[in-house]
């Protein structure tokens, strides 16, 4: 199960590393989103920590959705999905492998985007690094999980590209709320200690359970 998922994740990462376009597109997109949101808030860097936190999380979620549009594209093109469905593996491995790859992309994007965000908005006295990194990792798990699940559901839809953001964004609102609140905490505001981080972990667990329970029905006819 884990072996099959890792094999699938590895192939998807290899494919993206060879083509590069998607990763570069996501990097440019997240940079553009941060800049646009910044100017949309009238370019006022004094808008404060809360505005900076919101900017980061909005940019991450929209960039993730952009990346999700390509999930399963390689499988869809060559009919690989049939081969994966017929392979003697748990169907959950297909979804888990894809989610792992998606998680990998998000981490790569954030490795670039977060330092840039930091440099643009804070001179020296930024939020607590550990909390932000932990919040991002926990949120990435949830985004990758729910995103892959939605992408699988939208497979075969006539208007897949329009449909996918509509499916994913409402499901990710709790992640945004948890992530933003955790980031406020990283700025030293009182958010009830580790509660936002705990919430993000709980969200991941709930959707892992739901995805696991439905995975046999997720793909195929």
């Amino acid at each position: 199960m884990i072996g099959a998922a890792l094999a699938i994740a590895r192939v998807k990462l290899v494919l993206e590393i060879r083509r590069r376009e998607v990763i570069f597109a996501m990097l440019l997109f997240i940079a553009a989103t941060i800049v646009i949101v910044h100017f949309a808030l009238s370019g006022d860097t004094g808008a404060g920590n809360r505005a900076a936190a919101g900017m980061l999380w909005a940019a991450i979620v929209f960039t993730a959705v952009l990346g999700l549009l390509r999930t399963f594209a390689a499988e869809h093109e060559g009919g690989v999905l049939d081969a994966l469905l017929l392979a003697p593996i748990d169907r959950a491995a297909i979804w888990l492998g894809t989610a792992l790859a998606q998680f990998g992309f998000l981490v790569v994007i954030e490795l670039v985007a977060v330092p840039v965000w930091w440099a643009l908005f804070f001179q020296g006295d930024g939020p607590s690094v550990g909390t932000v990194v932990l919040a991002l990792l926990l949120a990435d798990i949830g985004i990758a999980l729910v995103g892959t699940l939605s992408a699988a559901l939208a497979l075969g839809a006539r208007t897949r590209d329009v449909l996918l953001p509509v499916l994913v964004l409402p499901l990710l609102i709790p992640v945004i709320l948890g992530g933003v609140t955790a980031t406020y905490g990283a700025f030293g505001e009182d958010v009830g200690g580790l509660r936002p981080l705990g919430f993000l972990a709980l969200y991941d667990l709930v959707f892992i359970a739901l995805a696991w329970g439905t995975s046999e029905h997720l793909l195929g006819d």
């Binding site: 609102i173 709980l202 709930v206």
Partner: peptide
Amino acid sequence: GLIPMSFLAVRIAQTL
């Protein structure tokens, strides 16, 4: 999953 998660998320964000 979403209904309880939304409740929790709104509550966590709101206390603040």
